[in-house]
Amino acid sequence: MEDQGQVKKMMIILSKATLENVYACFVLANGARMEGIQAEIFFTFFGLEAIHQKKLEHLHIATVGNPAMHMPTMLGGLPGVEALATSMMKKEMEKLDMPPVREFLEILSASGVKMWACKLAMDMFHYKEEDLIPELDGVLTVGDFYKQGSGVGTHMLFI
């Protein structure tokens, strides 16, 4: 094979806005660029919150329905627990030199990661392009996004 199985481009679809998913997506996209691999992110459904100007700084980790939190579900649902867990996690991430969401988006954009918003989800949530970050490369349909991913060595990932 011409490409010898090399990963040339990562197309990542982010459909969730819980902090752990958003960071997984950003680290994977940034890590691709660091290895000389192209990367594009398609923000759909709740994933749009990660690029929504008024929401992106207020994302939380999930304390309910997340068995890896090792916390009784009832406790996870109490007021303030999610915020507490989130601030603890943010402190740990800062120690690892993980940037906050807005700075991470700027890094991704400067690193050449293309960022697209899903048209259908935007219509569903009644978001306008001006509600989203200025670094956004555009609003796409699913078909457009697949077209972006054409070529040998492209991999798609759904988060």
Partner: peptide, 20 residues
């Protein structure tokens, strides 16, 4: 000092875009 893309961006020597 461990190196990262973020650190390079804050170095004052280059920004991330220029580094790439």
């Amino acid at each position: 000092v461990p190196l990262s893309i973020r650190k390079i961006g804050k170095s004052g020597v280059v920004d991330i875009k220029e580094f790439y």
